[in-house]
């Protein structure tokens, strides 16, 4: 453990880390986020090889395609896999910055290589797996700067702002009661289908949800 910027820094990988080690750790994590390794194995190995060089120089597996600021709080968003920090951009690109990871449904990852311009307009952002959200539960997900609560009721999924309009309590940690979520802080109730509440002028924003191949997507 060393000190950087006054904060203790703990390292996940030590000397002797191999490409196989990185794959074994990153693959299952990316899968929970709706992504898989690029279909082009030679490209994947190239990127991971570059990450191993960076690991040796810096002590962590920073993205080979992004520049680091030197501020650990900022650079945490470019430690691979950095998908949770860039969900909306990557959903638009259908890949991460490097193209190391691509959306589960992309068949030919090579087609996407080189594409960096971010598309405009609404994008479907994968947020979690259906199996990670049993019926009757709600959870918070971060999509870019947005905080969204995803609820599962019966066979349907709903997405609404995570922030209660009363005192900004986290609805994603609230209690589900049929189609309603009760804020964990003071009990304000919202209908997860349309974001409405009995309190005047306090409805919350809702988002379209799509489910495909076991992944839950929010349209933002």
């Amino acid at each position: 453990m060393s000190e950087a910027g006054g904060r203790p820094v703990r390292r996940m990988f030590g000397p002797g880390t191999t490409i196989a080690d990185l794959k074994a750790y990153m693959g299952p994590f990316a899968e929970r986020l709706g992504y898989k390794f690029n279909t082009d194995e030679a490209f994947v190995n190239d990127v991971l090889e570059a990450e191993l060089e960076i690991l040796e120089q810096t002590g962590d597996v920073f993205c080979p395609c992004r520049v680091r600021s030197g501020d650990p709080k900022e650079d945490v968003a470019v430690i691979c896999p950095c998908i949770p920090f860039w969900r909306d951009q990557f959903a638009g690109l259908r890949k991460c910055w490097c193209g190391l990871f691509i959306l589960n449904e992309v068949e030919d990852g090579l087609e996407l290589l080189g594409v960096i311009e971010e598309p405009q307009g609404p994008v479907e952002v994968p947020v979690c797996r259906v199996t990670d959200l049993p019926s009757g539960q709600i959870r918070h997900v971060k999509v870019g700067k947005r905080d969204i609560a995803i609820a599962h009721v019966g066979d349907d999924f709903y997405a609404l702002s995570n922030l209660c309009r009363h005192a900004f309590g986290p609805l994603g940690e609230g209690f589900m009661d049929g189609h309603h979520v009760m804020c964990p802080w003071h009990g304000w109730r919202y209908d997860v289908r349309d974001g409405t509440t009995d309190h005047p002028n306090a409805d919350v924003k809702t988002y379209e949800v799509r489910v495909r191949d076991g992944d839950i997507f929010v349209v933002v």
Binding site: F43, D46, V47, A50, P64, C65, R66, C98, L113, G114
Partner: peptide
Amino acid sequence: ALSTCPYCRM
């Protein structure tokens, strides 16, 4: 470029 970036190398 970045010395580590695969796209830059390509």
